[in-house]
């Protein structure tokens, strides 16, 4: 009797194992067919857009569901600008696809995500965009940040700056990426707000890094007050932000007691692009900390001829030492 039970259980396990694999395969079939339909439409859409000819949505076996239409336009439009984007938008309007953007209020997060992605791809702005930056789902928030980057940060720069403190890493990374690409004047006011009264260390560090890439004089001025902070990481970030200003100040910091600060000073010397710093930076190739030496190598490479000369002499000596070992 027990043997029968065991065999029965084993048969059930086998059947279950096979069933879930078949189920997964069926799902793959459906998705593969959907992708094939999107691909077929995508090719004709791209051809029509390039030639300026009218475009016809796929019929019969290439007919798309509304979700697939949304996916198609989101995919094709993602990197487009100028005339091609205009053409794509016209085609989307011809087929009433812009109505799919109404799903920005949808209850399901993936419908909202689809709508945001489509709006971003077509670079169509909507009054609901600021609300979507506060969406409960991180993927929707991240997509809304990218959308804002596409249509301009005029009204949402402040909110996106606040997202530097978002609990989700992807949202933070997207906010940082969008802010670093934005014109300096658009975001400087909000970054100054953070530099004056930072909500926390993470946000302050992000703002200092943005100040370093932004190179706005007003930001450098605010960043300077953090260059004497007790936290070496904050000090280091502040040094990079003020790098373009004083080269003498950087030379002094190359001998700082903390290696994080020395490393930042070396990087700052690279950002300042002042070739007279190649000598002091060259001395950092003998720094006891490998990360400072590493930063010195990278900085000297940026310093064109004077840096290359220092590197050449040093690398020849090191190769000879290592061969001797």
């Amino acid at each position: 009797m027990s043997n029968v039970v065991v065999l029965g259980v084993i048969a059930l396990v086998l059947a279950f194992g096979v069933a879930i694999q078949i189920g997964a395969q069926q799902a793959v079939y459906r998705r593969t067919e959907s992708l094939a339909r999107i691909e077929a439409n995508s090719q004709s859409l791209v051809r029509a857009m390039m030639s300026g000819q009218p475009w016809q949505l796929g019929q019969g076996e290439n007919e798309l569901t509304s979700a697939e239409r949304s996916e198609l336009f989101a995919e094709v439009g993602a990197g487009l600008v100028g005339t091609e984007l205009e053409r794509l938008r016209t085609m989307a309007e011809t087929y009433d696809l812009t109505t799919l953007i109404d799903a920005l209020d949808a209850k399901r997060w993936w419908h909202r995500l689809q709508a945001v992605s489509l709006a971003a791809a077509l670079a169509i702005d909507d009054r609901r965009r600021p609300q979507l930056l506060d969406d409960v789902h991180p993927s929707v928030r991240a997509a809304a940040v990218a959308w804002s980057g596409r249509v301009g940060l005029a009204t949402t720069a402040g909110r996106i700056t606040d997202l530097l403190d978002d609990p989700d890493g992807t949202v933070r990374a997207k906010a940082f990426a969008v802010l670093s690409e934005a014109p300096p004047d658009t975001v400087s006011e909000d970054l100054i707000r953070i530099l004056v009264t930072p909500r926390n260390r993470q946000m302050l560090l992000a703002a200092l890094h943005l100040a370093a890439s932004n190179q706005h004089p007003a930001l450098a001025k605010q960043a300077r007050m953090w260059s004497t902070d007790d936290d070496p990481e904050i000090r280091a970030a502040a040094i990079e932000a003020i790098a373009t200003e004083g080269s003498q100040e950087l030379v002094g910091l190359l001998a700082d007691g903390d290696h994080t600060v020395r490393r930042a000073a070396v990087r700052g010397a690279g950002l300042s692009r002042k070739s007279e710093l190649s000598g002091p930076v060259g001395c950092c190739l003998y720094d006891p900390c490998w990360e400072v030496r590493n930063a010195a190598v990278a900085t000297l490479k940026q310093m064109a001829a004077p840096g290359a000369l220092v590197l050449r002499v040093f690398s020849r000596a090191q190769m000879m030492d290592r061969s001797a070992d």
């Binding site: 065991v6 065999l7 879930i20 395969q25 799902a27």
Partner: peptide, 28 residues
Amino acid sequence: LAAYGFGFLLSSISGAYESRLDMGQTSE
């Protein structure tokens, strides 16, 4: 049989995960 059945079950579930993930294994 219990040990081997369990092993088969693990392989089946990971096979199903794999299909969903990389859209592979598309023939009977």
